[in-house]
Simulated assay, not measured.
Amino acid sequence: MSPAPPAFEPLSLSLLILIAAAVLLDLLLGDPRWLPHPVVGIGRVIARLERAWNHGPPADRQRRGQWLAALVVGGTWALAWSVLGVLAWVSPWLSVAMELVLLATTLAARGLADAARAVAVPLTQGDMAAARRALSMVVGRDTVGLDESELARGAVETVAENTVDGITAPLFWALLGGAPLALAYKATNTLDSMVGYRSPRFEDFGEASARLDDAANWLPARLTALTLWLAALFIPGSRWRGVLASTRREAPRHPSPNAGWPEAMVANLMGVQLGGLNHYAGRPSPRATLGTPHETLTAGHIERAITYMHGGWLAFLLLAVPLVLMREWLI
């Protein structure tokens, strides 16, 4: 007898309630170190397969990279679906509890806020060394010698960009397919972070992973920009007039087809400028600027970025309510 499928229908009211509970669980607990995290296991599989498959002529590496993306993403979905199905035979409540936990592992609202505040707190206290160390834990750029404005910029950009990867995109895919599809998205995101970036080693092997991640984030990134703007209507001090047009104009300047949308929106809402010159391993890497610098970036802007982050995912969930109710009514 085959396992029963998970109980939650896409865009159902019961699934939306479970997702909201998962968000609360993430906000309360974050990612406890003692609890095994699915992304860690996914990363280990990717690393092992990359070592075994990333060799030979470019065409062979490209083909194996496509197999890697299909195997990791499809395997993650199938494993999660099977586990939930088996647990449903044992006890429906056990399956629900497991899906709640799995959904929470795909979210990073608390972790993102904590990482940003780890930069903001010492920066506010004038401890530049501690702020630089904290920022170096979440960005790839060089942080040595950065002043308050540049440290704040790095933290604000991290919060804005990862609002999509760490919160709203998992919510989007969870609404369509529960924990299995949300975990498949996290597998896509992990593939991109490990093998999708541009370098001689991954240029061919990681192409499929990078393109898949771009596709998975395309709609969530743009919806997130919209929900950040909607949240700003209720956040005092926001410069929300005209920022939709500014964001649409500026977002394509970003080297990523998706990251520019939340970054440009946050920059325009706060009246600051993001982007500019970064250094990686001592090498300069100029980026297009986003936003108009009405204000100089300070530690206080990091907390404002966190406020927009929370407002953005909350508006994201609230926008799902009428869609869910419409579906329930039609059915």
Rank of each mutant, 00 (worst) to 15 (best):
G30H: 02
G41A: 15
L27I: 07
D31S: 13
P32Q: 03
P36D: 02
L100I: 06
D26K: 03
L27P: 05
L103N: 04
D26A: 03
V96W: 08
P38W: 00
A78I: 11
S95T: 10
W93G: 12
A59L: 11
L94I: 07
A97Q: 12
V86A: 13
P57I: 07
L87T: 05
T76M: 01
L25Q: 07
S95N: 08
R33L: 13
T76R: 00
L15Q: 08
L25F: 03
S14T: 13
I19C: 12
A104Y: 02
M98N: 00
A21I: 14
L84G: 02
A69G: 06
L71K: 09
A97R: 14
V101M: 14
T76G: 00
A47W: 06
V83E: 00
W77E: 11
V45G: 00
V73E: 09
A80Q: 00
R51D: 09
I19L: 15
P57K: 11
R63M: 12
P92A: 03
P92C: 08
L29R: 13
I46H: 10
A70L: 13
A78R: 09
A88W: 12
P32V: 02
A69E: 09
W34I: 14
L27Q: 15
P58V: 15
A70F: 12
H37V: 03
L100T: 07
V23K: 02
I19K: 06
A97N: 05
V73S: 06
L94C: 08
L18W: 05
S91G: 13
G41F: 05
L94Y: 09
R44K: 13
P92D: 04
D60I: 15
L27M: 12
R64V: 03
V23A: 02
A88I: 01
